[in-house]
Design a binder for these strands. Structure first.
Length: 417
DNA sequence: AATAAGTTCAACCGCGAGTGG
DNA sequence: CCCACTCGCGGTTGAACTTAT
């Protein structure tokens, strides 16, 4: 592991975080918010650079992290999303509440890739490996031919080639031959399948961030039809991964997708009526009392009407963005548009996902193994250095949806305050 | 028991985007 | 437009851990 140049200049600490450092960071952020990350280490009394603090918080200390082993449903979802989004880990992570992009990326590289290859599926293109080999042969042939004629035609083959080289992954394009894998889109596909996906994403993003009364429909239906995968990988044939589908009509977009805020209350919220937890269980590595997390997260008396009437509900209440409380630059804060909430966050907020993923049992969610020092998702980890009390039984009894509805409640109704 | 090989995952690196002066 | 700064992202690294020999 290297060292940030800023760390090097300032002779800052690097490497693994000690419990003492974690404690300092948590205390600081829970009390003051992170503000400008660059100022956090100084204010928190840490010999780290702001970047390192940010990373530590986002990937490890955040209270809404799930941790533990990935469930089969989560893996399936990752595979499906990867087929659409490619290596856009942050967007994939946005679909999996409590998971970080880093975590998902690691899982992909260490586990899922291997599994797919074992099943004869190319993890980059999500096509059968045999098909890839054929295409490579054809590509080689056509390349020889094209060299004699013209260059630069954006062919499917060149796309596959690019995808096969992860270093050259074109982030603007989802991988693979979409027509084959997204049959529902056949009638809708524009000239470029990749553009189609991108446009959908961009449109939905813009829609959600610019106008809540906009009825643009980020139609995601038909994205997933992974006939290539075997049953053990369990993809879209899994009825529980109907993330983007209207369960009554898979060919039509869900009401949730079409208009998350104007027409009706989020159906998933309806289906998962909020009930306050009797305990104060959190999923992060520490049990944290939020004293002054963010002015927008506390003292919020929110109702369903708020959700309906205020399209900026999440933004105003900062439920998911953990935005800075004070960014040191007054102008910036004054005109602070809360951190950009991606379409994915609108659409697949935890309670939405809870409705789309079946509720896996605790064993399924977290696995039964006790990963010694990795058991960081205990609910009652003391802030005492080196004394991380875990209560995995209690933790494991929480299902994903419960966990996240709790956090939603907590953030919305001031549970942490 | 010792060691090599393989795996996991926390953390770093470098880049690009956004923003303000 | 340029520059400085911050933030966030994806790729990569390497220490710690696990498994195989």
């Amino acid at each position: 592991m290297g060292r940030h140049s800023c760390c090097y200049k300032q002779k800052l600490r690097k490497g693994l975080w000690s419990p003492e450092e974690d404690e300092k960071l948590i205390k600081h952020i829970t009390k003051y918010g992170h503000g400008c990350w660059s100022s956090v280490p100084k204010l928190a009394g840490l010999q780290r650079c702001g970047k390192s603090c940010r990373l530590r918080w986002i990937n490890y200390l955040r209270p809404d992290l799930k941790r533990g082993t990935f469930s089969q449903e989560e893996e399936n979802l990752i595979i499906e999303l990867h087929a659409v989004l490619g290596n856009r880990w942050s967007q994939i992570a946005a679909q999996l509440p409590g998971r970080t992009d880093n975590e998902i990326k690691n899982l992909w590289n260490s586990s899922i890739k291997k599994k797919l290859r074992q099943r004869g599926i190319d993890p980059n293109t999500h096509k059968p490996l045999s098909e890839i080999e054929n295409e490579e042969k054809n590509s080689a042939n056509s390349k020889n031919n094209n060299e004699k004629t013209s260059e630069g035609s954006a062919s499917e083959l060149s796309f596959v080639e690019a995808d096969n080289n992860s270093n050259n992954l074109d982030k603007s394009k989802p991988p693979g031959n979409s027509l084959e894998r997204y049959p529902l889109l056949e009638n809708n596909l524009p000239n470029s399948t990749h553009e189609f996906f991108l446009n959908r994403f961009v449109a939905s993003h813009e829609t959600s961030t610019t106008s809540c009364n906009n009825n643009k429909n980020p139609d995601m239906s038909g994205f997933f039809s992974f006939q290539n995968y075997g049953p053990n990988i369990g993809l879209s044939m899994n009825p529980n991964t109907n993330l983007f589908f209207n369960p009554n009509n898979p060919n039509k977009p869900s009401e949730i997708i079409s208009d998350p805020f104007t027409s009706t209350l989020l159906p998933s919220i309806k289906n998962h009526p909020i009930s306050f937890p009797s305990d104060n269980t959190h999923v992060g590595p520490y049990n944290v009392k939020f004293e002054n997390w963010d002015s927008r997260t506390t003292n919020v008396s929110s109702t369903n009407t708020d959700l309906q009437n205020n399209c900026n509900f999440f933004e105003n209440n900062n439920v998911f963005t953990w935005a800075p409380q004070d960014c040191g630059k007054p102008g910036k804060e004054a005109s602070h548009v809360p951190e950009d909430i991606k379409w994915t966050e609108y659409l697949q907020t935890p309670f939405l996902l809870g409705n789309t993923m079946h509720n896996p049992g605790p064993q399924e969610l977290y696995g039964s193994e006790n990963k010694s020092s990795q058991g960081q998702f205990g609910t009652e980890c003391s802030l005492n250095a080196g004394n991380w009390h875990t209560n995995q039984q209690q933790q494991q009894s929480l299902q994903a949806t419960e966990i996240y509805s709790k956090h939603f409640q907590a953030a919305t109704f001031g549970e942490f305050s």
